[in-house]
């Protein structure tokens, strides 16, 4: 096996040296690590991809509310709006935003999802990957390639920062999901490896400091709406990167900043619901009603 791949610089160098795409290098690397075949790794990735498509499909058809009753019918609302009047940016925008709401609402009503990287951020990668694949007619093998790249981005970040709101805030959950989606999308659209990594850096940089302050301690407010927002955010990063816009701060250094910001962030803003949105007057009223 090549030496271990724990930074984006190492990833880029190995791809360059062997003249290979990220997914080619990583599926081989993962197969050797797990003492299995590249085909088996791809099957595991496909299992996740299939689950993502299933949660989109189920979510689009439901408006069942969560156990708390706070969320669950916004995807239906958005679909009705689009039926009446399309989105300003067209079909792809419609797909990404509805697929994101469909998936995250499926999560909160205890439906089946793929945690990517976490349950509360599970809609960002699938909505971009599946929505764009449908519109650009991207085949399943290339979708799997993109999901391998998304997983690679998350894995390298997780070497430095635990992908958990309680450890580093939402920047490490929805933030990282958006960075993963930006890289995956850039690859699907034929971007070069530097462009893929730039898309990741641009997306990540713009989400540093994002806190985790869930109302009533539940994965609902603000998590549900944050998913479609950060899916579109990933598209913005990808467009910039494909245009040749570069992050002046190299990606590995952006991840250092992510780690440091997570450490400096008050524990009150890291999934403990002791500050921020969670302690607003309305949130406290909701909490009182819910736990009565």
């Amino acid at each position: 096996m090549d030496k271990s791949i724990n930074t984006f610089k190492e990833l880029e160098d190995i791809c360059k040296k062997n003249n290979k795409q990220i997914y080619e290098v990583i599926q081989k690397y993962e197969a050797e690590l797990a003492e299995t075949t590249e085909k088996d790794i791809r099957l595991l990735v496909k299992k996740s991809l299939d689950a993502m498509k299933e949660s989109i499909k189920n979510g689009l058809q439901s408006k069942e509310m969560s156990i708390s009753g706070m969320c669950g019918d916004d995807c239906d609302r958005l679909q009705k709006k689009y039926q009446k009047e399309g989105a300003i940016f067209g079909k792809t925008f419609e797909k990404i935003t509805t697929y994101a709401l469909a998936t995250i609402e499926e999560n909160l009503r205890m439906g089946k999802i793929a945690a990517c990287p976490t349950a509360g951020s599970c809609a960002i990668v699938p909505s971009v990957l599946v929505g764009v694949s449908e519109d650009l007619d991207i085949q399943e093998e290339d979708q799997i390639n993109a999901l391998i790249t998304a997983g690679t981005i998350g894995r390298i970040i997780s070497n430095k920062v635990a992908l958990a709101g309680a450890v580093a805030g939402c920047q490490a959950e929805c933030g990282v999901a958006s960075a993963m989606a930006a890289g995956a999308l850039t690859q699907m659209r034929g971007g070069s490896i530097p462009q893929i990594l730039n898309a990741v850096a641009l997306a990540m940089k713009n989400l540093l400091g994002l806190t985790c302050d869930p109302v009533c301690g539940l994965v609902e407010i603000p998590c549900v709406k944050r998913n479609p927002f950060l899916a579109i955010h990933a598209v913005t990063a990808s467009e910039l990167a494909l245009a040749g816009v570069e992050s002046k701060i190299p990606l590995d250094e952006v991840i250092d900043a992510l780690e440091q910001t997570g450490k400096l962030m008050s524990p009150m803003l890291k999934e403990s619901s002791q500050a921020g949105l969670a302690t607003t007057k309305t949130a406290l009223n909701l909490k009182e009603k819910l736990f009565k």
């Binding site: 271990s4 724990n6 990583i26 993962e30 690590l33 797990a34 790794i41 595991l44 990735v45 299992k47 996740s48 689950a51 969560s66 499926e106 999560n107 909160l108 009503r109 205890m110 439906g111 089946k112 999802i113 793929a114 945690a115 990517c116 990287p117 976490t118 349950a119 509360g120 599970c122 990668v125 999901l147 391998i148 998304a150 997983g151 690679t152 998350g154 894995r155 997780s158 070497n159 992908l163 958990a164 309680a166 993963m180 539940l218 994965v219 609902e220």
Partner: peptide, 22 residues
């Protein structure tokens, strides 16, 4: 450093809503 896998990042396939609480 403990090696994680990309599969850990893009899964598990689970019922929601929370990896820690569900």
């Amino acid at each position: 450093m403990k090696q994680t896998s990309i599969i850990d990042i893009i899964s598990p396939v689970m019922v929601g809503p929370s990896s820690s609480h569900t």
